[in-house]
Design a protein around this nucleic acid. Structure first.
Lengths: 332, 332
DNA sequence: CTGAAAGCGCTTACAG
DNA sequence: CTGAAAGCGCTTACAG
């Protein structure tokens, strides 16, 4: 009811509030007997220190901030799942901030800094280059530990964890080539996500090595739009393999292809670069490169805890492994 | 850099810190000229009050807590999207707390209360009844405004926003009946989510009114498991309509049905009770009852702001409208 | 309309 | 090992 404060427990335990504070923060510095007594009172009263007061006094909030664009994208939600699990384990609270391109980034960043978070996980992959710079610089100026989660940004100093999308896409393109495919398309988002740019680079590299011209088709992230977008595709293009940056793009393309009489995988091999749960809901089941997004979240949160505790960290740039999952949309 | 404090702006503006505080919180109480001067200095220095100090002094954190189970479920992510947008509009920060059945709920709730949030949005639909009671009682005791988002709990006092799932499912079952279907199954989750229980009630009611025996098939939320689960289904059951609490269940059932030679929708009508974006990725496209989950988030956040500001609110129990979206898995 | 002062609930040197 | 005191950066009566 009326929140019990540190004074209440100090009174009940007949010690000073400094001692109570110590048993919570530096238990080794207090006599075992008084420690036990205080602990007992704390339990009896159900005392929990007011996190705000503690934050002000210690200048640590044990809260991290997550900067993202839109939480409802499935990759972001999964990433957050990984973050949340590890944050909980290390007893950090998490505050979320969504930041859009069309707002004043300087002001938005001031707002997050004013929240006094101990560290920041940066997931926003939708900012323009200059906006991104403003955001990152603000964090650096405030000297808040930060790690980029599933976002690429050209700055050696900023720790990051992601997947080697470039290599993943290079390898999968090579594999299509090895299967004898020639008219290989990359289907990517019209919007320039840094992660998708990497995929495009890997794809192009493999195509060029093979002496083939890269063919990139840019579409919307919105499934209902991109399936319309695919309607005229087959009149003007020949294609025998499709690599898509998102499973939903792969699936909607595949559906339209089948409507146009194409056989999957005989006529066209299709692969998705995510491996969401919808890959096994599509007909046929979608072959994927599995990108462990949850793990990116978990690993970046863990890395952030190290920076917040000023531990040594050997590797500031972590790339997690991906793997190929063959299902029914590719021939082998 | 070094954070600028209220003392810095007071010094630079040659006023007391009380005045600076007033221009931020009660601008009408300060002389327009000095107000302008202070505002100018604030802008020059890029000053933003320390949210933690402000929280301690004012006993308001302008932060809300969201209590959920698992963020990566798509309905939860969408709900959060709606919450986040409205929270931003009203300038509330949001902190997320995930709470699981297998932990000490009392302790977990103490942790969220210790964070001094001004209000709570309760999204966790995976707690056992007693656990739920402990959680809600803790919030009541702490006298923190709370609203239930997409969770049903038998307590008249607790405000909530959701959808009338019971009626939605009743209506859709009636519609199947009107189409002449008789062997209508409800596919639901094995786990007892309160929202799914409502759907089941509505379904049963419609079936019983028609003098038919309700047939409920419980399966996993995990797509790879439930498709296995459906394998033997057709040997033992006759079915001409399937209503599924989740689109993914509807789709995986439909896929197995087609593998067993069933024609959709001729032999079996299928409807999903969500309308996720995957409904238009399935073959055939899934007929749905559209459940506006984003809106639940937005509306519940808005409602919460009213409680936090102690405004009058007429209706504590809000049910949002759903609508029927006919696609290709039902005949009309 | 403005300032001096107390207080929000803690942590942390500093003495003892 | 323990307590008294200052301080974290604000807000808010209280005087004036």
């Amino acid at each position: 009811m009326a929140n019990t404060t540190i004074y209440d427990v100090a009174g009940a335990a007949k010690v000073s509030l400094a001692t109570v504070s110590r048993v919570m923060n530096n238990p080794e510095k207090v006599n075992p007997e008084t420690r036990e007594k205080v602990l007992r009172v704390i339990k009896e009263l159900g005392y929990r220190p007011n996190a705000i007061a503690r934050g002000l006094a210690s200048r640590k909030t044990t809260t991290i901030g997550i900067i993202m664009a839109d939480i409802s994208r499935s990759a972001v939600a999964q990433l957050l799942g990984g973050i949340q699990d590890i944050a909980k384990k290390y007893e950090y609270s998490v505050k979320i901030f969504s930041i859009r391109n069309d707002e004043d980034i300087t002001e938005a960043m001031r707002a997050v800094i004013a929240e006094q978070v101990d560290g920041i996980l940066f997931l926003n992959d939708e900012l323009e280059k200059e906006q991104m710079k403003i955001a990152i610089d603000a964090i650096k100026d405030a000297m808040i530990p930060v790690v980029l989660s599933n976002v690429f940004y050209e700055d050696e100093d900023i720790p990051s964890v992601a997947i080697d999308y470039e290599n993943a896409c290079y390898q999968i393109t090579k594999k299509m080539l090895a299967y004898g495919r020639k008219d290989i398309y990359l289907f990517t988002t019209a919007r320039n996500y840094s992660v998708n740019i990497k995929k495009e680079i890997g794809y192009k590299e493999a195509m060029e090595e093979a002496g083939l011209e890269p063919k990139v088709f840019r579409t919307s992230g919105d499934v209902s739009i991109n399936s319309l977008h695919f309607q005229g595709f087959f009149q003007n293009n020949s294609i025998d393999a499709a690599i898509a940056v998102r499973d939903s793009i792969a699936i909607s393309f595949m559906n339209v292809a089948q409507d146009n009489g194409k056989k999957i995988p005989e006529d066209i091999s299709v692969v998705g670069l995510q491996n969401t749960k919808y890959a096994i809901l599509s007909r046929p089941n979608l072959t994927c490169v599995d990108m462990p997004v949850y793990d990116i979240g978990a690993v970046s949160m863990r890395l952030l805890t190290k920076f917040m505790k000023q531990e040594e960290v050997a590797n500031h740039k972590i790339l997690l492994p991906y793997r190929f999952i063959k299902r029914k949309t590719t021939v082998s």
